[in-house]
Lab assay of single mutants.
Amino acid sequence: HNLTITQGKLFFHYNPKLCLSEIHKMEEVSGTKGRQERNDIALKTNGDQASCENELLKFSYIRTSFDKILLRWEPYWPPDFRDLLGFMLFYKEAPYQNVTEFDGQDACGSNSWTVVDIDPPLRSNDPKSQNHPGWLMRGLKPWTQYAIFVKTLVTFSDERRTYGAKSDIIYVQTDATNPSVPLDPISVSNSSSQIILKWKPPSDPNGNITHYLVFWERQAEDSELFELDYCLKGLKLPSRTWSPPFESEDSQKHNQSEYEDSAGECCSCPKTDSQILKELEESSFRKTFEDYLHNVVFVPRKTSSGTGAEDPRPSRKRRSLGDVGNVTVAVPTVAAFPNTSSTSVPTSPEEHRPFEKVVNKESLVISGLRHFTGYRIELQACNQDTPEERCSVAAYVSARTMPEAKADDIVGPVTHEIFENNVVHLMWQEPKEPNGLIVLYEVSYRRYGDEELHLCVSRKHFALERGCRLRGLSPGNYSVRIRATSLAGNGSWTEPTYFYVTDYLDVPSNIA
């Protein structure tokens, strides 16, 4: 807008934040220059609390790290170098490059900038070799853009010569660093050979998330399962459950009422301010606690030095998902009996873990797994792929695949051998790939016309006998059925096997 004052003059007093240069501009645009008398524009009460600059400061050096910015700028000295009290560095987070010096300023003089007072450097006698002032900004957020400017702080001049310097606002972004852990990993099994893994992005990506790394490792069953005799009275049979499938998407929606109208769909109840505040506090606490764990609990591995020492970490090797089922080394339970199943799973520490690289999504279907087997899954978020990966501390989750139908069934015939004193040795093959492992066998036998009897055969007993022995049988026709019990439950009964026990007292003698 054009402003013209045809008559009258300007009068400025007691404006401590208004620089004289701005008042002189007002004289020019209003056409009143030359009308004012000496005392109409006070030299001592206008701009006496402001830094009124008329020179431009330029930054000469900028260096960044993930949490620091090192700045240096060209030296500046007023005509009387004693008038320079120091520099004021202003900075704040700036997602967009549209910041002005006066953003967030209120009537009390406060604003949204963080201000650092910096002492002037030592003055050199040689004007050509003056030290460049600077400042190291610490405690910054990774991968965050900051708006920065600097200006001088000078003393009051009796001659009211307006001098000083100020830089333009520059924008500097800190470097990326390792992201925080992925949030809320959930693993479920939808079949006997697959596990579905879902997660949420890290709360602090500290860069642009480029991919996720998912490692999985087959877990050995508890050692007590191999040692305890679950045929003993009072000892509860062990059981394991597989990871249940995901709930429906509708039930997972946030901010939804727990109660549904019987007449149909209901609208979600909005969260109160107290609920939102509580969630923010919980989120802040979780982030602080995660940072504490990362800094205190997890110790970084030592990389190899120039002395030739090897990095103890196993090298990563990509495998196809079809090879995942046989990740671990199978060892027989008892070496003397080769027909026992290889369900003991000690994992070799030198073995390469299978892994998958996930790009542009937060889910993965891990296939080719062994049925009813526990897996430990390790999830890392990465925001750099080359020249070397920059990934987060791992988040861990466990899951067990679903049982395989008929995996616990005894394959092959049940054979028998009759000894003296009416002892019958029953023999059968253990299931080759049971659900988890076989903890015991149930032997059901009966003599024709009598009630059915049951015998429990422990895992250890089966390994020693290759089956079991029935003792003290009365003469007669017998039928026997056997079924295995694994961590997933009972298998199917075998087809009945028949044998006849004679009275050993009636056996004919070869003595003449």
Rank of each mutant, 00 (worst) to 15 (best):
K357L: 09
H454S: 02
E279L: 04
E282S: 05
K271A: 03
F215I: 07
E417A: 15
A394Q: 13
H254E: 08
E388W: 08
L277T: 02
E356M: 15
S262N: 06
S203P: 05
R390E: 02
A399N: 01
T485K: 06
P312D: 14
V365P: 14
L228D: 15
E310G: 14
A484T: 15
G449R: 03
S262E: 03
I377F: 09
G325C: 03
E279I: 05
V358R: 12
F372Q: 02
V345I: 15
N422E: 07
V424K: 02
Y504D: 04
Y504L: 09
T494K: 08
L228C: 15
L321C: 04
V414D: 01
K236R: 13
L379P: 02
K406H: 09
L440W: 15
A407L: 12
S320W: 11
D222F: 06
S344Y: 09
V414W: 02
R318V: 12
T288K: 08
I209N: 07
R240L: 07
G472E: 03
C391V: 01
D273Y: 11
S342T: 05
E260G: 07
H416I: 10
A309R: 12
M402T: 05
Y441N: 01
F355I: 09
E217R: 03
P431S: 07
K271F: 06
D323M: 15
R481Y: 10
S257C: 09
E465V: 13
A394E: 10
D323W: 12
E389S: 08
C231I: 01
F462C: 02
R390L: 07
Y478E: 00
S274Y: 15
E388T: 09
S474K: 05
L470W: 07
L225Q: 08
V329T: 09
L369H: 03
E282A: 05
D229S: 07
D503L: 04
A263I: 14
N421D: 15
E290T: 03
T415W: 01
E362A: 12
A399M: 02
N208F: 12
N421M: 09
S341W: 14
G306F: 09
G436F: 12
S262H: 12
V359I: 12
K432P: 11
G308C: 14
A484R: 00
D273S: 14
S342E: 06
W242V: 12
N206K: 03
R447V: 12
G368C: 09
F462E: 02
S257E: 06
V329D: 03
C468G: 05
V334N: 06
R353Y: 04
D229K: 08
D229T: 09
P332Q: 06
